[in-house]
């Protein structure tokens, strides 16, 4: 899942300051915007994990966030100029602008890295027998539904196996997984021409 951070604040020094602090630690896209209206067009994003830092004053149109939340994993942190703001409205969390850089980094890490660490943990692990069975059926071109029927498991379980397979192998596309399955003899290529599968 791709990650993005948006910093929305009128003050350039705050935007730039946060940007340079966060950039040192996080290697993904960080976008600076002056106004909420500059977020228009963002509704088309989907499948992202997005963190917003929003200046708490001057918030008018919140609709855009409802839309973004539908198709992305979103966290909105309000940047307040004092400590008085509570977690209200669209904010999931608040953070005063005069907070320390390390605290700000921790807030970002909390949101993004739970998942990241899971990936790192998985990568390089061997596939389980069950996962190999799923991989084989994926490589042979079966849909999730058919795989579920053949293995007597739910579609949901198939999806979760596929997610783990992708994380362990570092390969995402179906044709990429097929290549892996062929060269690791997960599928028997005696009977079929492997090049037909890819």
């Amino acid at each position: 899942m791709k990650h993005k951070i948006y910093i929305v604040h009128r003050a350039e020094v705050i935007r730039m300051g946060m940007f340079s602090i966060l950039k040192k630690r996080f290697n993904f896209e960080i976008i600076q915007l002056k106004k909420i209206v500059d977020l228009s067009g963002l509704e088309v994003l989907s499948g992202f994990k997005i963190l917003f830092f929003l200046e708490t004053d001057g918030l008018k149109d919140v609709n855009v966030f409802h839309k973004i939340r539908k198709t992305n994993i979103v966290r909105i942190i309000g940047l307040s100029s004092d400590n008085s703001l509570q977690k209200i409205g669209i904010y999931d969390d608040v953070c005063p602008v005069y907070t320390s850089g390390s605290r700000m980094i921790r807030k970002v890490a909390d949101f993004f890295e739970n998942e990241n660490e899971a990936v790192i943990e998985h990568e390089g692990e061997e596939l389980s027998t069950r996962e190999k069975e799923v991989l084989k059926l994926v490589a042979l071109g079966n849909s999730n539904k058919i795989i579920a029927d053949k293995l007597f498991i739910s579609v949901h379980t198939v999806i979760s196996h596929r997610k783990n397979i992708t994380e362990k192998l570092g390969i995402k596309s179906i044709s990429g997984l097929t290549v892996y399955a062929i060269i690791n003899q997960v599928i028997d290529t005696e009977k079929i021409n492997p090049e037909d599968l890819i």
């Binding site: 088309v44 989907s46 499948g47 192998l169 570092g170 390969i171 995402k172 596309s173 044709s175 990429g176 290549v179 892996y180 060269i183 690791n184």
Partner: peptide, 27 residues
């Protein structure tokens, strides 16, 4: 135009897979 936004990712994913397959798995 929003329809075409989705299609990008697939091409990018395959390119990354190609890289990973060669680096990690090919003898």
């Amino acid at each position: 135009i929003t329809e075409f936004e989705k299609e990008h990712s697939n091409v990018e994913i395959q390119l990354e897979d190609l890289k990973n397959l060669i680096i990690k798995y090919i003898e």
